[in-house]
């Protein structure tokens, strides 16, 4: 990866007392203090504090409507916060959005390509927007076409590409200017599992080259791919840390995984059981949460369910997944 020409002067940081010059890369990629945004009476983002270290894949998780997109829009300088501080790559993005825009990339779930333009034209447009010089563009174009597996299809209209290719091309367009920080807002929604897997490989590749990735998703399995996570719920951050830390700090309960043909009957059974704190669907099976002090075991829980008229039920105690942690965190908030 060639060096991004950094024409944007770093903001002088008077308080640090350091000698002037470019801000050290030691400052977090993103640093938020008390960031708040309201729409009328509705508080979309409620005073969040967050630090995202450089060079990591940071997962920003939360259900729909919890404030993920609003946060991203404030971080990309397209939405003004009501209160609080937001520093992106060492720059106060509220006061100087233009100093940041050249150094960040953004890709949304809509894969905002111009559908009535060709692959080549889309790339040329975004390269032009960032004023890439022709040699840099030639190299980047080459790289993106190979990465998106679109060599030889440069003159196809993007509307004719299938979703996996569109997604990779959108990623290429969003990174054509080699941003230091890339925001991805639910980049994999509506994409099949194979394409999702391939897409995450590309994200790892970017991260390995030093790009910081800020990814929102509501696919909990994707959370495990991240170096660090933050959970946002109703505009507040309810947990953050590495996946292991989050599991350790927020999940003292035990989890049973229940595979059954009678999920419709078993789920109410579990919900009514006083020993079980929480029961929910998880993928193809059911998860039941019990307190750490519970005496329930695989066998005793299975016994109960069989006795209740659900034979062929398999019960196994499992390590909590990120999804389990999240469901429990949300349940506790209610």
């Amino acid at each position: 990866m060639s060096e991004t020409p950094d024409r944007v002067p770093e903001e002088p940081r008077g308080t640090s007392g350091a000698t002037s010059g470019p801000a050290p890369d030691t400052e977090p990629a993103i640093s938020l203090r008390g960031l708040t945004k309201t729409f009328g009476d509705f508080t979309a983002v409620d005073g969040i504090d967050l630090d995202v270290p450089r060079g990591q894949i940071f997962g920003f998780l939360g259900p729909n409507g919890s404030g993920k997109t609003t946060t991203i829009r404030m971080l990309t300088g397209t939405l003004r916060p009501k209160a609080g501080q937001a520093r992106v790559l060492g720059v106060d993005v509220v006061r100087h959005p233009d100093r940041v825009k050249r150094r960040i990339g953004y890709m949304s779930q809509k894969f905002a390509l111009f559908e009535d333009m060709t692959v080549e034209e889309n790339l040329r447009f975004y390269a032009g927007v960032y004023d890439l010089d022709p040699q840099v563009f030639a190299a980047q174009r080459e790289y993106v076409l190979r990465m998106a597996d679109l060599v030889g299809r440069e003159d196809e209209l993007t509307r004719n590409l299938s979703v996996g290719w569109r997604q990779r091309l959108a990623l290429g367009a969003a990174t054509i200017h080699e941003p230091e920080l890339l925001f991805l807002d639910e980049p994999t929604s509506g994409v099949d599992p194979v394409a999702r897997r391939q897409f995450w490989d590309l994200l790892y590749d970017l991260a390995s080259r030093g790009v910081t990735l800020f990814v929102t998703t509501h696919y909990m399995d994707e959370a495990a791919h991240c170096n660090r996570l933050a959970f946002i719920y109703r505009g507040r951050i309810i947990a953050d840390g590495s996946p292991a830390e989050i599991r350790a700090d927020h999940m003292e309960q035990r989890i049973f995984d229940i595979t059954t043909r009678y999920a419709d009957a078993v789920l109410p059974q579990l919900e009514n059981d006083p020993e079980i704190e929480e029961a929910y669907l998880s993928g193809a099976s059911l998860h039941a949460v019990v307190s750490a002090s519970s005496t329930l075991t695989d066998a005793s829980l299975r016994q109960r369910l069989v006795a209740a008229g659900c034979p062929d039920t398999v019960v196994a105690e499992v390590d909590p997944s990120i999804e389990d942690v999240f469901v429990n965190l949300v349940a506790r908030q209610r």
Binding site: T76, T78, D98, Y106, K110, F111, L113, V129, Y130, A174
Partner: peptide, 13 residues
């Protein structure tokens, strides 16, 4: 509708 407007305003445009 297509999201390109949103995309463009993240760039220096």
């Amino acid at each position: 509708e297509s999201g390109t407007l949103e995309q463009m305003f993240v760039t220096p445009i």
